[in-house]
Computed example of a mutant assay.
Amino acid sequence: MADISYHVPSAPPEWVKTFAKVGLTAKGVVYCLVGIIAFMAAFEFGGKSTQEAGKSGVFQVILEQPFGKWLLGLVALGLLCYAIWRFIQAAQDTEREGSDAKGGAKRLRYAFSGIIYGGLAFLAAKMALGNGGGGGDSRQSLVRELLQQPFGQWLVGILAVATVLIGLYQIYYGLSEKYRKKVRSAGLKSDIESKMIKAGKLGYIARGVVWAVIGYLFLKAALQSDPQQAGGSSSAFAFLEQSSYGSFVLGAVAVGLICYGVFMFMRAKYQPIYT
């Protein structure tokens, strides 16, 4: 008889649950602020610009608030908790993805997410400690380094295609509601479950659009061999704002990112955490 214990999630240590919930909450805070500032930039409220809507710009906004260093320090700690939880998911296969190609790819995605949010936690901590962190675009620096390598344009092109594919997958993930199974595993009331699914759908689609645009900017940088063409979320917002009906396009994406932040809050409150 097959060992069914592998398929039955076990109760996690309390610290793992705490890390997961604190991390999801911190991620929700960041995405809500990104969405709010991007929306304000889209319709020119409060003098906000797309430059301020990037992650480092949001960290700077937090830093400028009363007790800003403490608040940003808490955000940095929360993002670090999220990164550690993602590494636990990847290493211990807490989601029971398995070791085949499909499961391995998902676990690799968890690890990649951990690296990304670990980097964001480091940036937030540096800014909270007064060591800067807002100078320069890390993606432009990465592209510049890659372009100096043999076959540099090809390397940047591969990175561009991979980023676009991540964006398209996020859009597909939202439209197909493949996350619905995890939402339903929480056993929520139907109205809360419905709101959570809708928030997730809008959030994943908006997030996918941003990733796809970032990938397109990488592709421009590869084709033109110009690292200045690359950029992160703030550059993606500027690109959307300059498109046809740009304010409305950026505004819609911004609302979606706010929904994604709300979805993170709901996951922190309701989602079962397994190990």
Score class of each variant (00 low, 15 high):
L129M: 10
F112D: 04
E95K: 15
A11I: 11
G73K: 06
Q153H: 14
I116M: 08
M196A: 02
S244G: 12
E241A: 14
R86F: 09
Q170R: 13
V16K: 09
E241F: 10
Q148V: 00
F45V: 13
F112P: 00
L79E: 00
K102I: 13
V161I: 15
L79D: 00
M264P: 02
R184N: 14
L123K: 09
P150E: 11
G261S: 07
T163C: 13
C32D: 02
I158D: 11
S176E: 11
I197W: 00
V164W: 08
M127Y: 07
I166S: 12
F112N: 07
E52M: 08
W85A: 14
A41W: 00
K21R: 15
V210M: 10
G57S: 08
Y173L: 08
G203E: 06
T275S: 14
S234L: 04
F263Q: 07
Q89S: 10
A38I: 04
G28Y: 00
Q89F: 09
A128W: 02
F265K: 05
I197E: 05
G57Y: 06
Q149E: 15
S244Q: 14
A254S: 14
Y173I: 08
I214H: 03
G104A: 03
G232D: 07
V29N: 01
S234K: 14
Q271E: 15
E52D: 10
G208I: 07
R267N: 15
L202V: 06
Q153C: 07
S225N: 13
G114D: 02
S113N: 12
A90K: 08
A212R: 01
G133D: 03
G261E: 03
V61C: 10
F122N: 03
G200K: 01
S235V: 10
S113C: 09
L77D: 01
A128R: 02
Q170H: 15
E14F: 13
I158P: 04
G119W: 04
S194P: 03
Y31S: 02
S49Y: 00
G135I: 08
L80P: 06
V249D: 04
G46E: 02
A125S: 06
G256R: 03
I171V: 15
A254M: 06
V255N: 04
S141W: 03
K21F: 05
V16L: 11
R267A: 12
G28A: 02
V143M: 05
F45A: 09
K178S: 14
E241I: 03
M266V: 02
F67E: 14
A160S: 13
S113D: 12
A125Q: 06
A90E: 07
R86Q: 14
K182F: 11
A124P: 02
S141H: 11
K220I: 09
V183I: 13
G167W: 07
G104V: 00
S176D: 12
A128S: 08
V16D: 00
L129I: 00
L155K: 15
A199Q: 06
Y169M: 12
I171Y: 10
L72A: 07
Y179A: 09
G118H: 05
A26H: 00
Q149P: 06
